[in-house]
Every structure is written in C-alpha cells, then in structure tokens.
C-alpha cells in the first residue's frame, strides 16, 4: 500500500507571538517553528504502517523555511521518500488556500492513503484532510487514533466527544485526519540526521495555483486577559504559600 504523509510546520506556541503591522497574520520573522504535533503523530503512524504492513511511505511538505530539515527528520525516522512542493511565493498558509496544491501532488503520486494531522493551530478556515478529500473526491475521516491495513482496506478508530469511538473500515483511496498514532512518536538520533546533511530533498513540480480567493476580512488580536485569573506573584516559596492559603481558605486543605 502506498502512503503519503503531509508534514507542516507550526509556530512554537510557548513562544511569544507578535502580529504583522496590518494585524492580518502573525509576524514570522522571529518565531520558532516546530512540526505540527498532529503531523508528528501522522508521521509516526505512517512509519508504523511501513514496519507492520510494508507500506511505502512518501513524506511531502510545501517548500518553506525549515522544511528541508523537517523532511530530513522524516527520512531519518524511516520514510522511503521525501519531496517538497515548491511555490513561487506563499501568500496564504491556510489549509483552504493550500489544499489544491497538496491535492495536485497527491494526484501525481497516486497513493492509496493520505495521512495528515487532524488540524493545524491556524486552521481558521477549515482543516486540510477534508479539503483535500473534497478536492480529490475521496473518502475521508478525521479525529483518527489507531490505524491498520487489512488487505486493500484500512481500519481506523474515529474518536467522538465524551470518549466514545468507532472502528471504521475504509476502502481506498482515502484521506485520514490523524489525531493520535498507535504509538507515541519516536525520537530520532542526531547522528542519523547528520548523515542526511548533504542529501538534497527533490522538488515535486505541480502546475496548480493555490486558492487565494479572499472572502471577507480577518484581523488577529491578543486575547483579553484582563478579566482572567487573579495572579500570584513572587518566588517559588511565595507562590506555593499563596496557593496553600487559597486552598485553606476554600476548604481544600487544613
């Protein structure tokens, strides 16, 4: 079975986020980037499928700052092939805008299954898996944890609210929005990455344009924290003391 896994970088959310002057996007100049945590789960799931069912795995990403390293990490972890899709300029990084690019790449690669993280933290206009599936006309299921291949079908576990779930059997080709891999993502040894330093990640050329149709307007803002928590200040002891007093006052401690 041929598997394509899509990898994306997201801003590191423990870093401070700043806005561009027109407040329509975050300022990407100084932010740290890391693999979208759900794409990390997807990558792990794809490698597990390679190990358990001999799947052939191709990792793809849109060419951008940090993406070569991202794809080399995927190679170091065990994917068979890594490709970057190059765009002249990335004007809009939303899933809605980029879905046609990924869909075109998938048409080119003709996999049986596409695995992509269920969401990205900036999916304001919708998630990638259902957009790609709609573009390709394939079946799709999101919020998937656990995944196995049975002959030419896949069995996935779809999670619902309140801890309910169902095992779904999906005919291929299919797109899966993955939430959690069967096992936690593995680490990759630095030495393995160093071995790949000189490897060049090939480009996949496609002649489809992103969807840049703009409907309405968007402004980003920092949330109003003024009505939030009463903050305890001070050093470790001072904070512990204030929490302790609060717990005593509310009857949780003597």
């Amino acid at each position: 079975m041929k598997v394509v896994v899509i990898l994306r970088l997201n801003p590191v959310l423990t870093d401070e986020l700043e806005l561009t002057e027109d407040e329509s996007d975050i300022d990407r100049e100084w932010i740290g980037l890391e693999i979208n945590q759900f794409d990390d789960q997807s990558l792990e799931q794809a490698i597990l499928l390679k190990e358990s069912s001999d799947a052939h795995v191709t990792a793809i990403a849109i060419k951008d700052e940090g993406v070569e390293r991202l794809l080399k990490t995927a190679l170091a972890k065990g994917v068979d092939q890594a490709l970057q899709i190059s765009l002249e300029e990335i004007e809009d990084r939303s899933s809605r805008a980029l879905a046609p690019m990924y869909a075109a790449a998938i048409r080119e690669l003709q996999p049986d299954v596409v695995i992509v993280g269920v969401l990205s933290t900036d999916d304001l206009f919708g998630e990638l898996a259902p957009y790609i599936a709609a573009d390709l006309g394939w079946s799709q299921a999101s919020a998937i944890s656990d995944f196995r291949i049975e002959a030419d079908k896949i069995i996935v576990r779809q999670e619902y609210s309140g801890g309910r779930a169902a095992l779904l059997e999906m005919a291929t080709p299919a797109v899966v929005g993955l939430q959690t891999a069967t096992q936690p993502p593995r680490y990759v040894a630095g030495s393995k990455l160093r071995d790949l330093l000189k490897v060049e990640i090939p480009n996949l050329s496609i002649d489809v344009a992103p969807n840049l149709e703009k409907v309405g307007s968007t402004e980003l803002a920092l949330p109003d924290l003024s009505e939030g928590a009463t903050m305890f200040e001070g050093d470790t002891d001072a904070i512990a003391e204030q929490i302790h007093s609060l717990l005593q006052e509310k009857g949780f401690a003597s």
Partner: peptide
Amino acid sequence: YSTSGVDMGSGAAYASNLPLVCY
C-alpha cells in the same frame, strides 16, 4: 466543533463554495 464538524465543515464549504469560519 465536534468530530462531525471537522469532517464536514471544510467538505461542505468546498462543495457549496461557501466561505467557512471555524473555532
């Protein structure tokens, strides 16, 4: 924003060509 909302929001936006806003 439940599993069905994630499954269907983008798909419906694509099929109907309507704008979609999430979260």
